[in-house]
Structure formats: C-alpha cells, structure tokens
Design a protein around this nucleic acid. Structure first.
Length: 374
DNA sequence: AAATCTCTCAACCGCCGCTGT
DNA sequence: GACAGCGGCGGTTGAGAGATT
C-alpha cells in the first residue's frame, strides 16, 4: 500500500495498530470522549476524529459483545428490521453489546441472503412476488372448482398464505440442501445488484423458483421438525401430513383440531389480536385441502419437475402450463418418486438456518395483510 | 503446494440533521 | 435566516482469511 493511500493531510488511514488502540483506550479512560475532533491530537494519534470515534464505537468500547450472533439476536434483528428498515443504529440500541456496523454487516452477509432464498423479500419482509403468484395460482387451480371448500361468498377457504406455508417448507428445505447457494444468490452479484434483482422480480423470480424446485429433495423435510414443533403443535400436524405424503403413506385426514392450540401466525387472518372463527375454520379446512388428491398431484408435480431449463439454461418453467397439466391429470405415479424417501435427523449448527420459517410465518401474514390479500 | 475464488468485516466516505453563532 | 462545525448514520469498499480447484 502506498503512502498516499494510507495518509491524507498527514492523517493515517487503514487498519489500526495495537499501539494506536492502546493510545485511544488510555485517553478515553482518562478523559472520556468529549470532542472527537480534538481527541486525536490530544491523544497523540495521527487519525481524524471520525476514525477514532468509529474505532471506539465499533471495536474498542468495553461493552461490545464479540462472537457469533445468537438465535435470539438473529430473530430480534429480523423482527426489528421488518419494523424499522435499515435503521441500524436503532436496531443496535435494542441489542446490547452489538454495534450498528456489526448488525449491518451480519444482515448483508447472512440474513438478507437467507430471507431471499426462503421466498421473503428482505427489503419489505413480504413474500416475494413470484412466490405469492405461485400460491395464488395454486389456490385458484386447486379450489375454484371445489364448491364444498368455498365459503358462500365464493372466497376460497384456503388463502394464499396457507399455500405459502407449504412453499416456505419447500424453500427452507432447498436452503438446507446441497445446492450451491450461489446458483440462486451469487454473493457478489447480490451484493452489488440486489436492488436491481428485487426490482426485476419477474425475471429473477423464475430463476429462483426454478432452482428451488429443481434442487428440492424430499429427504430433507424432517429437518423442519424441530422448528415446526417448537413453533406450533398445529404446524407439526401439517408437517407430519406432508411427511407422510412424501413417504407415500396414507395421510390421516384430520377431522378436527385442538383449537386450544394457538394457530400459526401465518393463518391469522385478522390483525393477530384474536383468532376468529373464520381463521379456525380456515385452518381446519386447509388441512383437508392438503390432504386432497388434487393437492397431492400438484405438490408432487412441483417436486418432480426437474427439467425447467432449456438448452441455453434459460428457465422455461411456466406456472400456468404446469398447473393446467397437473390439474387435468392425476397420475398415481406422482407419489412414487418419493416412496423410498429416508428422513435425516436435524443438524446442529445448521438448525439456525431453519428458524426463518418462523419469521416467514410472522412476516408473511403481515405482508399479506398489507397487500390486502387477507 | 500454488493459484484462484469466495466471503467476511473493519474501516472509509459522503450525506444529513442538529446545534451554536 | 444563513452559515459552519460537528457527530451520527447508512452505504460501500477492499484487505485478508478461508475455501476450493
């Protein structure tokens, strides 16, 4: 590194040395940090005040917590970000020992990618447009022709968020899988082009969906178990249902649910304060829907649809055609592909990666409320 | 073992808002 | 009200560590 790149106006730039750190610590311990502008001169440092302030605030402060973010911290960051946006300093104020810079870095390098892969727009915390679109089409395709599942008003009893519950599982499984995340979400590309990526949903979303479906492996489903059971007993029932589908077992169709259980947030159709009768009815009906042969057909088609790109690697996945083909035929062999599924145990470290579906539930319901879909 | 690639995070930059004059 | 100085914030960069080929 040349002198000109490290020094400007006689002020040093770049990484701090241990000696500089010690000078700064000694000075602040003695005099406090009143005037950052005059501090470096008084402390014998050839740094600008700004640099000193940042070094102290982000690294030398005695109350800084080091090490990996905990599950609770991650959860808090996502929750706070969904409310506050990129107000890193405000978020940091709610996380003792963590700096805004640290949180910002962690968000950009970990959480943002994770949310995106799960089908959540990390900027708005709403479901990504492509996922909503799929849910909507699935919903229409599944239930518009089934009057018994419709309310008198004509509204389908299974709403997009319920279908998203299924999709979130698919997406979460995908993130746990052996797929190279960079296929979906190349780090450097995302880093530089994430805004563009998010703005160009129709193009990128097809790729996302393509990758998700192409790389999904049913034997990852049980990885959800810990999370789902922790999240909610009712979710566990749904999970078991999906699992048994994949094992080609006869799914026990629940006739009723223990309504004393808290319903998943995802299925809250109101503001979340009270669980309406409608919500309860929807939840039970949704379980019936997931057990329907029609659902089986579509679900397995999604899993089986492996050839979604043409020779040039351009996705040719077309939701409408997929659904029209799946709803018009109900091949019994659809289930066979997963009949030999073996389930693996949840892992240790990577369990962290599954928590997101909790967040998905929380945020999707909000997002759908916001978008007027619920 | 070396070269290359990927990822992380400390540090910088520029802008903004607040405060004092 | 206009201006200057300062601190704080969020976006971005790039060095270096680690992973992969």
């Amino acid at each position: 590194m040349t002198k000109s790149s490290t020094e400007k106006n006689g002020l040093k730039k770049g990484p701090w040395t241990p000696e500089e750190d010690q000078k700064l610590i000694d000075y602040i311990q003695k005099h406090g940090h009143g005037k950052w502008r005059t501090l470096p001169k008084n402390a014998g440092l050839r740094r600008c005040g700004k640099s000193c302030r940042l070094r102290w605030a982000n690294y030398l402060r005695p109350d800084i917590k080091r090490g990996r973010f905990s599950f609770e911290e991650e959860e808090a960051i996502i929750q706070l970000h969904s409310v506050l946006g990129n107000k890193w300093s405000t978020i940091a104020a709610n996380l003792p020992g963590r700096t805004d810079n640290e949180i910002k870095n962690y968000w950009n390098t970990h959480i943002k990618k994770k949310l995106f892969k799960m089908g959540i727009d990390p900027v708005t915390h709403a479901p990504r447009l492509d996922v909503l679109q799929l849910a909507s089409i699935l919903n229409t395709s599944l239930f518009n022709s089934s009057p018994q599942f419709n309310y008198p008003s004509g509204r389908s009893v299974i709403n997009p968020s319920q279908l998203l519950s299924l999709l979130s599982t698919l997406l979460s499984c995908q993130t746990r899988n052996n797929v190279n995340p960079d296929n979906v979400f190349n780090h450097s590309n995302f880093h530089q082009n994430d805004n563009q990526l998010l703005q160009n949903q129709p193009q990128s979303s097809q790729m996302q969906l393509h990758d998700t479906l192409q790389t999904f492996q049913p034997n990852q489903v049980s990885l959800q178990e810990n999370l789902i059971s922790k999240s909610n007993p009712l979710n566990m029932e749904l999970h078991q249902l999906m699992k048994s589908k994949l094992e080609n077992q006869t799914s026990p169709i629940p006739t009723s649910f223990s309504h004393q259980n808290t319903l998943p947030n995802l299925w809250h159709c109101n503001n979340g304060d009270n669980i309406s009768d409608l919500s309860v009815a929807q939840s039970s009906s949704a379980m019936q829907c997931f057990s329907s042969p029609k659902f089986n057909t579509i679900f397995n088609s999604l899993l089986e649809n492996q050839n979604l790109c043409n020779n040039e690697g351009v996705p040719n996945f077309n939701l409408s055609s997929l659904l029209s083909s799946t709803t018009s035929s109900s091949s019994p062999s659809a289930l066979n592909s997963s009949s030999s599924t073996t389930f693996v145990n949840g892992t240790t470290e990577d369990e962290r990666d599954t928590y997101g579906s909790n967040m998905l539930m929380y945020n999707i319901s909000n997002g759908l409320n916001d978008s007027g879909l619920l």
